[in-house]
Design a protein around this nucleic acid. Structure first.
Lengths: 258, 258
DNA sequence: CGACATCTTGAGAGACCTCAATGATGGTGG
DNA sequence: CCACCATCATTGAGGTCTCTCAAGATGTCG
């Protein structure tokens, strides 16, 4: 177990929430950060009731902290204001499978709406330091019930979530290393693009080769060699930490064929 | 493409519905077959409105027929009365990934409720000849809204569906052939057991080695060798077509460790 | 009996993994 | 400013798992 591979229990998790952020915002938009990134998936300024339970809280958690925990009933829906997170399935012997990456602006733990009072199947952990906003499920449920617009947004998110998960199964099951990696890079590039988080051909992500490995069912070493293969064929390139998609059409071809 | 690997379009699909089954049942329980297997996941005899759109229809489809199609908006929820089905993701070059098996009594295309008017992400195809019962989504939605009991059932199903899919990703990504196969065998054995469809240690399924292969991201040849390994170590055995779980504890150990 | 689907086995090749070591980078404290 | 440390990326060598190709065997059905 390495230095950052802590398993926080409830108390420890509370401890790492930086206090100055742990405020309930009593006036104005419940969640200003959501607005600031301009991709707010939930309308925090909506006419919610006054009861404190309907307000959102913003928490800052550091990399690797648990945001939600497998086996716990979720009563909150979360949005990611800043930073990246990942949905993770843990195996009994310590191996882990990353099921999904969450990028700034994403809503997650939607499952809380789908599965009611059942315990969460998987954990969500911070990939970088994150600002997370939490809303009571009941509030969101009302919102969806009363607003067709929000219902549509909810449906769209659930749709994408299920589609991604299924595609990931197909990728890991059917494609080789280049195909899997190409698929994931394109997915991230596209999702970031929709949020305005790319500039041109630059794909900047905090996802390390180790994370790619855990998401794609490969070893970090082989992820590295696969990156090298893509780079030496001119499909992608690296500037410092940032990746460039130099030849998107070719990358898509690799994603489809392999 | 082999003999049974048809791709039915809408007209062809209609053609293979055996007419004597294609009846709307005008009197009595909307869907007697559901009751007959005693595991009806939906209450077909509920006080639904009289309008024909709220009645269910029972269709018999032959093996390999499409029940629902990827890319089409689903307005119906289905239950499986008889036979097995599978949720399938198709890759552009013909490879396929089986995402889930459906056993008699299962409800599927629940996604129609989750994702609203979005096109289905994946197809559902008959694995054997099947009797399928279809209910309008709107009806089911009302039922869920009005009955806590049905809502709970719906939540439970959604919960299991998501859990299975996530576990499948983790299995394929992290486990070797024996581990994957052991996991899937145990899953099927358990699910069949809950429906009273096993007798003792016997696991009888229409799932062929080819299907196991497509579900687990392996080749049929290697599935065969993996079965052989399990059989020669005394964990499972075969009587004609039926499989026996001879040493469940050991199978679980293999499922966890590998 | 033939036709067909399914299962089984062998031999060789390729993809991917394991183990181990080396670099590169950035942050920290003296 | 440099030594030190942690993280992450990179590379090599060799081994294992799984795939591919090809051929038979078995069982079912008309």
């Amino acid at each position: 177990m390495r230095a950052h591979d802590y398993c926080f229990d409830g108390a420890e998790m509370a401890a790492i929430m930086l206090p100055q952020r742990m405020t309930e915002l009593d006036a104005g938009p419940a969640c200003p950060l959501c607005d600031s990134i301009g991709v707010s998936p939930l309308p925090h300024q909506s006419a919610l009731s006054d009861s404190s339970v309907t307000r959102s809280t913003v928490n800052t958690l550091r990399a690797n902290a648990h945001i939600t925990r497998a086996g716990e009933v979720q009563h909150q829906i979360h949005t990611l204001h800043r930073g990246w997170a990942m949905q993770v399935a843990h195996l009994s012997d310590g191996r882990r499978q990353i099921l999904n990456f969450y990028i700034p602006g994403d809503t997650f733990a939607i499952e809380a709406l789908l599965i009611g009072e059942h315990p969460a199947n998987f954990a969500v952990r911070a990939l970088t330091e994150v600002d997370v906003c939490a809303f009571p499920s009941a509030t969101i449920r009302e919102l969806i019930a009363s607003s067709p617009e929000h219902k549509a947004r909810y449906h769209r998110d659930a749709h994408h979530h299920l589609a991604r998960l299924g595609r990931r199964v197909a990728d890991i099951g059917q494609r080789n290393a280049q195909g899997r990696l190409a698929q994931l890079l394109l997915e991230l590039w596209e999702r970031l693009g929709e949020r305005g988080l790319t500039s041109g051909d630059i794909l900047e992500t905090p996802v390390r080769q180790e994370h790619f490995a855990d998401a794609l069912g490969m070893t970090p070493v082989h992820v590295n060699r696969t990156f090298r293969a893509l780079r030496s064929s001119g499909v992608i390139g690296f500037d410092r930490r940032a990746m460039r998609i130099l030849y998107a059409a070719r990358l898509r071809a690799i994603a489809d064929e392999h």
